[in-house]
Amino acid sequence: MLGNWFALFMAIMAVICSIGSASDPDPLQDFCVAVDDSSAAVLVNGKICKDPKIVTPNDFSVSGLNQVGNISSPVGSEITQVFVDRLPGLNTLGISLSRIDYAPYGLNPPHVHPRASEIFVVMEGTLYVGLITSSPQNPNMRYELFAKILHPGDVYVYPRGLIHFQYNVGKGNAVAFAGFNSQNPGLITLANALFGSEPPLPSDVLAKAFQLDEEIVKYLQSVPWIQN
């Protein structure tokens, strides 16, 4: 009898594995609402391919990553993205790149990339970087911070979907490059999303979530939230 149950279990697992191998690819956009229109030009997980007859070398190249970004923003950092919109040849390759410039004490605020892991290398300056784990299974444990100081030539990795940040703790400018295993990693800057959404989240929801006075939340929702 036990042998029969084991055989049935193995058969079910074989079916599940075969279904899993034919699953949909990971999403490259936040959502893709279905349209019941056979003539609609719908972009699904990427861009429509260019006719190979008119492809040029420029489709596989981009310039300007040697230029310092505008670091005069309130957070003191600037992200220069090399995603598929700027480098069309990236389409379907599952990779992309960013340059991040930091003013002294500039911050790349806590954020997540919902569709990609990230490998991060410091080129110049001294950066305090870190990531925060997902919800702990033990309710008595806290979310855990993994952070350290990085110098030129140091590399750090951020697993997909985890909150992370970088902070320039040096007195001079800093520069880093980040690589992603998606042509469209997505970016959710937590403060911007929560306090700067349109329409705004109900202030009492945020007040309870952050254990703040509702008037403080309303003030935070009134200030401009600029993406770096």
Rank of each mutant, 00 (worst) to 15 (best):
D26I: 04
D204P: 07
G76K: 02
V122I: 10
C17S: 14
P109F: 08
Q29L: 08
K50W: 00
S222Q: 05
L131S: 14
V82Y: 07
I54E: 14
P202G: 12
N45E: 01
G20R: 15
G179S: 15
N138I: 03
I132A: 08
G153D: 11
D26N: 13
H151G: 00
T56P: 03
Q67T: 10
A191K: 06
S61Q: 04
A14N: 13
H113S: 08
P109M: 12
D51W: 01
N45M: 02
N66D: 15
L87Y: 11
T92Q: 15
L131E: 03
S39A: 06
F120L: 12
G186W: 06
I48V: 07
D59I: 01
S21Y: 02
D101E: 06
Q29T: 10
L107P: 02
Y167A: 05
G69Y: 03
A116W: 00
V35D: 01
L97S: 10
G186C: 08
L107R: 05
K218Q: 12
V217L: 04
I226H: 03
P139G: 00
L187H: 06
A209K: 12
Q183V: 05
L201C: 01
P159Q: 07
N70C: 07
D154P: 05
M1G: 10
N108H: 10
I188W: 01
V35N: 07
V15D: 12
D85I: 01
A34R: 09
M123I: 11
M141H: 08
K50G: 01
P74M: 02
M1Y: 04
F120M: 09
Y167G: 03
I19R: 15
D51V: 00
N138V: 02
L2G: 15
V121M: 15
Y219W: 05
D213V: 02
P110D: 02
V75D: 06
L93Q: 08
Y156S: 14
D26H: 03
A34H: 12
P136Y: 00
L127Q: 13
L43Q: 03
P74L: 08
A174P: 06
F6M: 09
G20C: 10
G179K: 09
N140I: 03
A147N: 11
A34M: 04
S117M: 03
M1Q: 04
Q137S: 11
Q211E: 13
Q221K: 04
A7L: 13
P152E: 14
P27V: 04
V112D: 03
I163Y: 03
D51N: 09
D26T: 11
A34V: 09
N45T: 01
V121R: 15
Y158G: 07
V35P: 05
